[in-house]
Structures are given as structure tokens and as C-alpha cells.
């Protein structure tokens, strides 16, 4: 339960940062954008049901659309990504599966799994966003290119955030002394 509240808090914070700061992060003539709220979606715990994933995705996407005036683009991309997330998670899960209460972290799952899951989720989101936005078969290669470019930048940002603010290993140094004084 604690991890769920923590994850929802992270999701809300990432949405806020997206609206206030990262909405301006548009580079290379619109080829590279940052959707920081994807980090919040990645950090949702594995214990969530698939239905909850989809509903949370719909709410986050709709919120982004209302604030960023993107008229349904983020909602469509978010719902699709959250629908796909359980399969993507299962694809990279270790043999003994993830602990249900936990969300992905470098500490528990290592950099490899974190980066692969972040890349898969980010690319699913970015690609669906640009594909729906272009809405033409001829613009699909364009959407793939933009998706890859935006995913690379987003994943770098997620890795930095995870490195700075992710769970840290507990220090091994024993602070209690064996001496009675």
C-alpha cells in the first residue's frame, strides 16, 4: 500500500513537472520531445491490476491533454502504453518474477532491466503519440524516427533521475558501538 501511495505521488509530481517545465523541452524542430510523466507511469508498482493501469493512464493522459491543449493525443498514447505495460513488464521480468509490491528500480532490478523497461515503455508512448498525431501511413517512418529520438533523450533523463533520487542501498556501517561507554 505504501509503495502504491509513493508511486501515485511520484506520478503526480512528474505530471506537474511535465506541465510546468518539460512542456518547453522541444528540440530539433519537434523531432525530440520530453514526456516526463512517462517516468511516473514506469514507476507504478507491479501489484497494480491491468485495469487500474489503463484507468490511471487515461486520467493522466486526459489531464495532459486538457492542460497542454493536445486534444486527446496524450490520452490515446497513455491508454495504449498502459494497456501494453503488463506485457512489456512480463517480457523483461526475471525468472523468479518481480516482487509485486515493488516498482522497478536500479537497486532491485539493475540498470539493464530499468533501461530496457524505460526504453520499451517510452518508445511505445512516443511512437503512438507521433503516429496518432500524424494520422497518415506515410508519416509512420517519421513517427518511428521521432519516437526513437525522443525515447533516447527521455531514457537518459529517467536514468539521471533514477540515479539521483532512486532507492539507495542501506549503509553497512554499524553505528552502535560494542563498547559500553
Amino acid at each position: 500500500m505504501n509503495s502504491l501511495i509513493r508511486s501515485i505521488g511520484i506520478l503526480m509530481l512528474t505530471c506537474l513537472l511535465q506541465v510546468l517545465i518539460f512542456r518547453y523541452a522541444i528540440f530539433a524542430g519537434g523531432w525530440v520531445i520530453i514526456c516526463f510523466h512517462i517516468y511516473g507511469l514506469i514507476m507504478l508498482p507491479f501489484e497494480l491490476s491491468k485495469t487500474s493501469y489503463i484507468l490511471i493512464g487515461a486520467v493522466v493522459g486526459a489531464l495532459m491533454d486538457v492542460v497542454l491543449l493536445t486534444g486527446g493525443l496524450h490520452m490515446a498514447a497513455c491508454v495504449f502504453t498502459c494497456f501494453m505495460t503488463p506485457w512489456l513488464t512480463a517480457f523483461i521480468a526475471p525468472r523468479e518474477a518481480f516482487t509485486r509490491e515493488q516498482s522497478i528500480s536500479v537497486l532491485h532490478d539493475g540498470w539493464g532491466r530499468f533501461l530496457v523497461l524505460s526504453s520499451l515503455i517510452s518508445f511505445t508512448y512516443m511512437f503512438s503519440l507521433f503516429a496518432i498525431e500524424g494520422w497518415k501511413l506515410s508519416l509512420l517512418p517519421n513517427a518511428i524516427g521521432k519516437g526513437i529520438a525522443s525515447t533516447i533523450l527521455s531514457v537518459i533523463l529517467f536514468a539521471i533521475v533514477q540515479g539521483l533520487f532512486g532507492p539507495k542501498p542501506k549503509s553497512n556501517s554499524n553505528k552502535t558501538t560494542t563498547y559500553y561507554w
Binding site: T51, I54, L55, G71, G72, M75, I132
Partner: peptide, 25 residues
Amino acid sequence: NHRLVLFVLLEIIALSWVASTHSHP
């Protein structure tokens, strides 16, 4: 298949929102 139904329903809502605002928000 409630998950699939929910997904399809939400996508329809989102895409019709996109379609309604595609030309003029």
C-alpha cells in the same frame, strides 16, 4: 474481456477527442 473492452472504449473516447480537435481545438 473487460480489460480489452475498457481499453477499446477509452481509445475510442481519446481518438474521437483527437478527431474533434484535429482541425480546430
